[in-house]
Amino acid sequence: MEISGTAQHEAWQARALPPVEQLRGDLWSIPVPIPHNPLRYNSIYAFALDGGGLGLIDTGWGSDDAWAALTAGLTAIGGDVTDIRGALVTHLHFDHLGLAGRVREASGAWIAMHPADATAVRSLTTSGAQHAVDTEVEFLVGLGADRDEAVSDVGAAENFGAWTSMAVPDRMLEDGEHADFPGWRLRAVHTPGHTPGHLCFAEEATGLFFSGDHVLPRISPNISTNARGGDPLRDYLDSLAAVRDLDPTEVLPAHEWRFRGLADRVDSLTAHHEHRLAELLAAIAAHPGSTPWQLAAHLTWSRPWEQYERRMRIFAVTETDAHLRLLASRGLVVGSGGPVPTWTPAAR
């Protein structure tokens, strides 16, 4: 894999925000900060459109500081937020969709997403923060959490206000459809896993591949279960295989830095998850009859398990559950059933 976003990589090593970059005559990368997050920033991609105006891929975290960074970046490339005609949002997370409503209000731009994530956003905005909290607490209890720990980790409903007021998109993009960006041939590539409706965008004229959070150069995106069910890790691995051989000229992710060598990176991400599955299978053999909450404590993480709490612990446990579901679908483990399933190796 070759690092092509050298300025981004150097900024990352210096723990600084990278510069606004002109990637070609009609394409720019604008870094927008994410508060209190190890990912540090989103790369928002701005396009000059035939006939005038700008298009965006993603919008950034929904905060005043992020808005200031986005608008300053647009000014730096000779534009303004009022020039935006449309925004493609790769997926529903707040660091990608958070500013979409403000962009639409300031410019009249349309907002496009995959229907699966649009449905989830609409549900969040209609059911409210307390419902979101209660649903997540019950889901974690069903994974083996003590109720008091689950309530503490999820937090109070007032912390979810921004999440339940995100912009509901007004345009849907299905797999294979092209975005309405005059002068560009951006084809939506449905890549479920990180979220059910995650989209990448393949630019057919230039060979550029905008990978969102699906393929990042340094880390694996969080692949977690939630109350909606499904088998997200199987979806993710299938989605990786689907993009592996696209052979783009360059990969433009939402975080970290641009790179070349998509197939190599897909192979390393696939190997990472297979290693993780093997580690989890060994933990189940050593601790049969354990819940996902208990099993997460027996896996290798970036820091000691005792330091995990709140959202970090939720991500770790739900990611463990995603790996458990894939092991079960492969016939390697068996769940006990009941309100809090426990897991044992399948009989050979």
Rank of each mutant, 00 (worst) to 15 (best):
residue 4 S to Q: 08
residue 10 E to A: 15
residue 17 L to F: 00
residue 21 E to T: 02
residue 25 G to N: 13
residue 25 G to D: 14
residue 32 V to N: 03
residue 37 N to K: 08
residue 38 P to V: 14
residue 38 P to T: 13
residue 44 I to L: 04
residue 51 G to E: 11
residue 53 G to F: 05
residue 65 D to N: 06
residue 69 A to I: 02
residue 74 L to V: 09
residue 78 G to V: 14
residue 79 G to W: 15
residue 82 T to Q: 14
residue 84 I to L: 15
residue 90 T to G: 03
residue 92 L to D: 01
residue 97 L to S: 05
residue 100 A to D: 05
residue 107 S to H: 11
residue 110 W to L: 06
residue 122 R to H: 14
residue 130 Q to M: 13
residue 133 V to G: 03
residue 136 E to Y: 02
residue 138 E to Y: 03
residue 143 L to H: 05
residue 144 G to W: 02
residue 144 G to E: 10
residue 150 A to W: 05
residue 155 G to Q: 09
residue 160 F to G: 06
residue 165 S to A: 15
residue 185 R to Q: 13
residue 189 V to K: 03
residue 199 L to H: 00
residue 201 F to Y: 15
residue 205 A to I: 10
residue 214 H to T: 12
residue 214 H to L: 00
residue 231 D to L: 10
residue 231 D to I: 07
residue 241 A to K: 11
residue 246 L to A: 08
residue 254 A to C: 04
residue 255 H to G: 07
residue 256 E to A: 08
residue 268 S to Q: 13
residue 269 L to C: 04
residue 270 T to E: 15
residue 275 H to Y: 08
residue 280 L to V: 12
residue 282 A to L: 13
residue 289 G to K: 14
residue 290 S to T: 14
residue 292 P to D: 11
residue 297 A to W: 10
residue 299 L to S: 13
residue 308 Y to M: 14
residue 313 R to I: 04
residue 327 L to G: 05
residue 335 G to C: 04
residue 343 W to S: 03
residue 345 P to W: 07
residue 348 R to T: 13
